[in-house]
Amino acid sequence: MSDVYERLVALLAEGFGLEAGEIEPELTFSELEMDSLALVELGLTAQQEFGVTLADEDIQSGDTIAQAAKTIEAKTAGLG
């Protein structure tokens, strides 16, 4: 997996009490039991970590961890 994915998993493990070993690329945020407030917090944390601007719709509960990483990668590449 990409560096962005690995860093995203680390953010989830450090900031949201999830076990890094239990986070799989195809799990959705809702499957990880992250509510809308947690997703807003994740978005803010990811913005600081990756130096990108994320809109509320960029990371949603039905998105997989891999999809979120790709969204962040696109933003860091200036494509999003």
Score class of each variant (00 low, 15 high):
Leu44Ser: 11
Ser30Met: 06
Val9Ile: 09
Leu8Arg: 07
Ala20Glu: 15
Val52Ala: 13
Ala77Asn: 12
Lys70Asn: 03
Lys75Arg: 10
Ala20Gly: 11
Gly80Asn: 12
Glu31Thr: 04
Glu22Gly: 11
Leu79Gly: 04
Ser30Phe: 09
Ile65Cys: 06
Asp56Ser: 13
Ala68Cys: 05
Leu12Thr: 12
Gln60Ile: 05
Asp58Cys: 05
Leu39Gly: 08
Asp56Gly: 13
Glu41Tyr: 07
Glu26Val: 01
Val40Trp: 06
Glu57Gln: 14
Glu57Phe: 02
Ser36Val: 09
Leu12Asp: 09
Leu8Met: 11
Glu22Met: 13
Asp58Leu: 03
Lys75Thr: 05
Ala46Tyr: 02
Ile72Cys: 01
Met1Val: 13
Gly78Tyr: 06
Ser36Lys: 05
Glu31Ile: 01
Ala13Pro: 03
Glu14Trp: 11
Glu24Phe: 13
Glu24Ser: 14
Ile23Tyr: 06
Ile65Pro: 09
Leu32Gly: 07
Ser61His: 10
Thr28Trp: 05
Asp58Trp: 03
Tyr5Lys: 10
Leu39Trp: 02
Gly17Thr: 09
Ser61Gln: 13
Arg7Gln: 15
Ala74Arg: 08
Glu6Pro: 01
Ala20Gln: 14
Ala69His: 06
Gly21Ser: 08
Leu11Val: 12
Lys70His: 10
Leu27Asp: 05
Gln48Leu: 10
Gln47Ile: 00
Tyr5Pro: 04
Pro25Arg: 10
Leu27Met: 14
Thr28Arg: 01
Gln48Asn: 11
Ala77Val: 01
Gln48Lys: 14
Tyr5Ile: 00
Phe50Gly: 07
Val9Ser: 04
Ala46Asn: 02
Thr76Lys: 14
Leu11Ala: 12
Leu27Thr: 02
Glu57Met: 00
Leu42Phe: 12
Ala10Trp: 06
Met34Trp: 01
Gly15Lys: 02
Asp35Ile: 09
Glu24Thr: 08
Gln67Asp: 10
Gln67His: 08
Gly43Lys: 12
Asp58Val: 07
Ile72Glu: 00
Leu27Pro: 00
Glu31Lys: 03
Arg7Ala: 13
Leu79Glu: 14
Phe29Asn: 04
Gln47Thr: 07
Ser61Trp: 04
Glu73Gly: 11
Glu14Ile: 09
Gly80Phe: 01
Val52Gln: 11
Ala68Gln: 01
Ser30Asn: 10
Thr45Asp: 15
Gly15Ala: 06
Glu14Phe: 07
Val40Cys: 06
Gly51Ile: 05
Thr76Leu: 15
Asp56Cys: 06
Arg7Ile: 08
Phe16Gly: 02
Met1Arg: 12
Asp35Gln: 09
Glu33Arg: 09
Gly21Ile: 08
Glu41Arg: 14
